[in-house]
């Protein structure tokens, strides 16, 4: 057992990566264990120890331990799937852009500027949409009530866009786009339903529990 102030300071520096609630509850305790398991005369944090601590901190921050109901876990997974679907759509559009442009230029040369604008808009908005899915997945997983509200609002907006596209007969001239959009919309629908189930309500708005 070693107890040098330098080593303790070094451990505390790494422990500062942990969530505040965990540090308030367990920092002194984990520090005692670290010092107890340190080698005789050790003055610096070893690589393997540092990695283990940082890995633990990341896990706690990314997947907090609050008991997450199955519905919320499923919703988070679906939101990650939503991000993946957007990414797949973006890649498809980027890869086929050349062919689409050639086809438009050959058949509807007058529509070229509009098609280019549309393509740029879609490709520019896709990273935003992917980021939004990931951010909402993360925040919903942590039980943030505002994230649930933003998710519902985003889904509402997405539905309006869908209705708008349908009313412009998008289904007839771009069936593949509409199918992709419908998949994304369905993912949104199911995840929003899941985060408003009774079990999810208890998770997002917990009642104080007696210990």
């Amino acid at each position: 057992m070693t107890d040098t102030p330098a080593l303790e300071r070094a451990y505390r520096r790494i422990l500062s990566c942990y969530p505040r609630s965990f540090r308030a509850d367990s920092e002194d305790e984990i520090l005692a264990v670290l010092l107890a398991t340190a080698a005789e005369g050790q003055t610096r944090v070893r690589c393997a120890e540092a990695w283990d601590l940082i890995h633990g901190a990341l896990r706690m921050r990314l997947w907090p331990a609050a008991p997450r109901p199955r519905t919320v876990r499923a919703a988070v997974t679906l939101m990650l799937a939503g991000a993946a679907a957007e990414l797949a759509a973006m890649i498809t559009i980027a890869v086929t852009a050349g062919a689409v442009r050639a086809a438009v230029a050959a058949r509807y040369p007058a529509a070229m500027p509009a098609a280019t604008v549309h393509e740029v808009l879609v490709l520019a908005s896709a990273p935003v949409a992917i980021g939004l899915w990931l951010w909402l997945a993360w925040a919903n997983g942590r039980g943030q009530d505002w994230a649930r509200m933003i998710s519902a609002a985003c889904f509402g907006l997405l539905s309006l866009v869908m209705v708008g596209n349908l009313s412009q007969h998008a289904a007839t001239y771009a069936p593949a786009n509409m199918i992709a959009a419908a998949i994304v919309w369905a993912i949104g629908l199911v995840s929003v339903v899941l985060i408003f189930t009774p079990a999810a309500w208890r998770y997002y708005r917990p009642q104080p529990v007696q210990h």
């Binding site: 367990s26 283990d52 890995h55 331990a65 609050a66």
Partner: peptide, 14 residues
């Protein structure tokens, strides 16, 4: 290791 142990304990407590 301490990090692994306390991540697990935190989860098991939750």
């Amino acid at each position: 290791r301490a990090g692994t142990l306390y991540t697990a304990l935190d989860r098991l407590r939750a």
